[in-house]
Nucleic acid binder design. Structure first.
Lengths: 343, 343
DNA sequence: ATTAGCACTCGCGGCTACTGAGTGCTAACA
DNA sequence: TGTTAGCACTCAGTAGCCGCGAGTGCTAAT
């Protein structure tokens, strides 16, 4: 167990290192305002803290640096819960004015978040199990091409253009779309695939000639592969962090950021509330010396999406956590309003 | 003027440097197959070439490196026009299979292009002066929210969700959409604004109550700010180039790539055909030691879009130029087919 | 006109010395 | 017994030096 004094010292070290990015030594600590102990005392305590795994040295005669365990303890116990509360209203102002496009707001939030922190922000769009299909449109551009448009109750629009093989009659297409609109109205997006394969298939068989082809075409057009949308802000902002002085690090970071699926998998299974993953706690290797802070924003009862900040382990946890709190609440509120309007 | 031999030597130096990224010395050149001269002779010629500004030294006793002028000459005169013709069909295979979504194809082309070259590819979406509005849809999500959807003849879909102030009657909205569909069918996107301000305004005044508000809402919803879309491939691919060993360079590159407008302005005013900008020839400071190779793809008579590769000055010009030729032709063909279908 | 030869230049990798920040430990102190 | 002063030690970082090698420019010979 840690003594009061050790806690104090750990706190000071983490704070200092977060700010300066330099290993912190005993003398520097003993000089601080609220530290009445001598450098030697500090050294003894630091040795203890290191023994217990909360601190590390970068080399045998360097100052101390927090270990992952140290950060973990700091995040769990040493952050004054209320302290440093970010003064509200980060994104609300953007929503105030009449127009209100969901995707735009999310994208802007991501950018603001990144700008405010110099980390990279990631927002996972609304999960779809609360999102329902509102309407299906098929607009033919010509005899052989058409655009299928799906609109959800959240205002999200998904579209795919495709070419129509000559074998398919336009009357059949029309009929199909009618069927779709009838059967799929207010169906949660997530259940789309299922319904497609059962009900719709059955129904269409009755009405539509040359069923097989038409069906497959529509199906492919309507079931998109990426059910969640990813918004990333300030990919390059993070380059301002001093830990990015190594070209290899940059390379591996950016190659990871190019892989959408990987990022999504990172964020997918998040609990409600704020969640911090430090270093190797992250399941993806590529960010094993990053920290990832996630929060969720909600709509009604169901969890909707995830909002996250990715930065070095040496992260301004206090600031980021309260900021993320504020923003996710703001987004929840905004969506709540939106939802109410649409019901 | 340059002698035959000087041309040969210049060519060899540029080729060699492009491949190796190391300054090339006289001895290395004299050893090559098709060089029957001694190192000393080469040295004399190199001194001449340097005097005339085609070569540079990195320091007083280093080998030679092509200067911007050297690259320029190389590109203009030393690239065998037909040589190294890239064996066709880079993206055609992707288009073959039934589905055919324009945006997907462009995005994939960008990625393929970057993967093939290890440079960053940029594709400017179709310019809109050939693109015509096909249909306008207004889908109301609820009493107070709606999605406006515009579909163009190229299959591009633009959408905006907005909230409807209580003052506006839904019957008015409906009427407006009808007017829009009637008047705007087949109108080039570029003329949208103009027509909006004259004809539509006049027409709507006659039919719609509370004209001013409704009008402004629709106008804002329908006139998007970004008339061209940007597709970027392999932003991080370019990190494999050895010139990116400097963190500052990376930083400035990525911060530039975040500014869409800047990139668009880079590519906007391109002639037909292939165009090469080397180093300071580029108007944007941030890429003053990059080369940018652009080509255009077309639809019918009008130029449609630009396709570009951004890399170090030490670029594989031969390969890139022929590759870009092939790809832009392929895209032109693809769009031509598409266009024919839609007419 | 070409080439061989030679002196010279300069970047670079390796070695050494020095400095300064920081530690661990011991012994003295309250 | 907890705290502190003192001291020897460690190590990263920097500067200076040396020698190597790749390359040049120039001169003189072919």
């Amino acid at each position: 167990m840690l003594t009061e004094r050790q806690l104090l010292i750990l706190q000071v070290i983490v704070d200092d290192f977060i700010e300066s990015a330099h290993p912190v030594g005993s003398r520097a600590i003993s000089k601080k305002e609220d530290i009445p102990y001598s450098a030697a005392t500090i050294r003894n305590e630091m040795a203890d803290l290191e023994e217990q795994g909360y601190l590390e040295k970068t080399h045998s005669s360097s100052g101390r640096v927090p270990s992952e365990k140290g950060y973990r303890y700091y995040v769990d116990h040493l952050i004054s819960p209320s302290g440093h509360a970010h003064n509200g209203d980060v994104i609300s102002p953007m929503i105030k004015d009449g127009f209100f496009e969901f995707e735009q707001i999310v994208q802007m939030s991501a950018e603001v978040l990144s700008e405010l922190t110099n980390y990279t922000s990631i927002i996972l769009g609304p999960e779809l199990f609360e999102t329902k299909l509102k309407q299906v449109q098929l607009i033919t551009l010509s005899a052989h091409t058409a655009v299928a448009i799906l609109v959800t109750n959240t205002g999200h629009v998904e579209h795919r253009s495709f070419s129509i093989p000559v074998e398919i009659k336009s009357s059949d297409l029309e009929r199909m779309v009618n069927i779709l609109n009838e059967r799929l109205h207010d169906v949660p997006i997530l259940k789309l695939q299922e319904i497609f394969n059962t009900e719709i298939a059955a129904m269409m068989k009755m009405y539509v000639e040359d069923f097989d082809r038409s069906y497959n075409y529509l199906k492919a057009a309507f079931l998109s592969d990426h059910p969640v949308k990813l918004y990333i802000g300030g990919k390059s902002n993070i380059l301002r962090q001093p830990e990015f002085n190594d070209v290899d690090k940059i390379r591996s970071f950016f190659t990871m950021m190019d892989k959408e699926e990987e990022i999504i998998s990172l964020l997918k299974h998040t609990d409600h509330g704020i969640n911090v993953s430090i270093g190797k706690e992250n399941e993806v290797d590529a960010i094993k010396d990053f920290s990832l802070i996630t929060s969720s924003y909600q709509l009604g009862d169901g969890q909707l999406g995830t909002i996250a900040l990715l930065g070095p382990m040496r992260m301004e946890y206090k600031k980021v956590i309260s900021l993320l709190n504020v923003v996710s609440n703001e987004m929840t509120d905004a969506l709540h309003m939106w939802y109410k309007n649409n019901e």
